[in-house]
């Protein structure tokens, strides 16, 4: 238990892929950040929430065999770097695919899935994963 607030405060970002856009240079950031690394001071107070489409392409992927406890029952699972159409790259699982179907450059889209569970009695943490388009 514990960490409830840490999970809860990321809900919008993890459930709906809400990014931050720099009001100065218009660059999109996911995960969200409060200061644009390009515009620095000019971006402060100008980072606006922006909904991402959830569409992107596989930048790279791996099939993870040696898994942390929260993912032990899922192994082997696919972890990927996904480059979203709006620009940001994020780290997420790709599900519902045979490993042989995976390839860098292939189109993927975001889906809503369980990410991890806090044991049988704890909270269920949901968020984005991706499937091949």
């Amino acid at each position: 238990m514990g960490k409830l607030s840490a999970v809860w405060r990321e809900t919008n970002h993890r459930y709906r892929l809400v990014a931050h856009q720099c009001g100065n240079c218009k660059k999109m950031y996911f995960p969200p950040r409060d200061i644009c690394p390009d515009c620095h001071r000019e971006s402060i107070g100008k980072m606006k929430e922006k909904q991402l489409s959830g569409n992107g392409r596989i930048e790279s992927f791996t099939i993870v065999h040696d898994a942390p406890s929260a993912f032990a029952r899922q192994r082997p699972y696919v972890l990927a770097l996904v480059k979203l159409d709006e620009g940001p790259i994020l780290t997420a699982q790709i599900v519902d695919s045979d490993f042989s179907e995976l390839e860098a450059g292939k189109k993927v889209r975001a889906v809503f899935r369980k990410i991890r569970e806090d044991g049988k009695g704890g909270i269920i943490q949901y968020g984005y994963k991706f499937v091949l388009e």
Partner: peptide, 16 residues
């Protein structure tokens, strides 16, 4: 359902 799917995830996909 996949191991990472439940009524919440199915409901969300249908709702979307």
């Amino acid at each position: 359902p996949s191991p990472d799917e439940d009524v919440a995830t199915i409901s969300v996909e249908a709702a979307r």
